[in-house]
Amino acid sequence: MNPSKSSQPSAPVVIARGLSKSYPRGSVTVAALRNASFEVGPSEFVAIVGPSGSGKSTLLNLLGCMDAPTSGTLQLDGQDVSQLADSGRTRLRRDRLGFVFQHFGLVPTLSVAENVALPAFFARRSDPKRVDELLERVGLSSRRHHRPHELSGGEMQRAAIARALMNRPILLLADEPTGNLDSQTGSSILELFRELNADGLTLIVVTHNPSLASAAGRRLEIQDGVLISSTPGSPPKPHGPR
């Protein structure tokens, strides 16, 4: 369902070395992320945690090729992406990465199915069967022709997850995916993430949600732009799906 395309299954999906990002703000520059080095292996489920403004989103945006690092190197699936130009990063976002946002980020003028198909559309492909399959997977088959505003928050996030999976990414990134959901809906999203991860998808999730953070196999903790610890998560809860 969610194949990891890495040629050597054991090679890390993400290798970050000395990854830094600073933003110019007026005359000074803000170092949002400083010298982060870590690896994420295939089929890992990693949570990035830390206080607000600590640089979690900054790191996730770098991993998601939304931004170029100020310094340091980043390899995704064996490819160095830190020097890529915009077009190269766009292609990676489109073909190798999936991104899920706190605010769902569905296009309001498109139906659920059309939203899910967007990444394929930008890759100039059309794969209605894949759309059906994904809608089925996230439980939205009956909602395919609905507009986003007709869905509940949880359904919107499911649609967004289906879209992120459209082009069979090697890595799914999520920035506070449960931040806009009540705890019950949030846990159903968490359940979905667990299943996807169990199917072999590599997941990196920024979260304030303790149950989501503890569901992850590993936690990266950031404070003031510095990666301060990498701890294995608590073992899967007994009431988990597997």
Partner: peptide, 16 residues
Amino acid sequence: TPELCLLRAVGASRTQ
């Protein structure tokens, strides 16, 4: 703007 940024994020190229 947010929506267009989103299209960029899910893979729309500048040309698109």
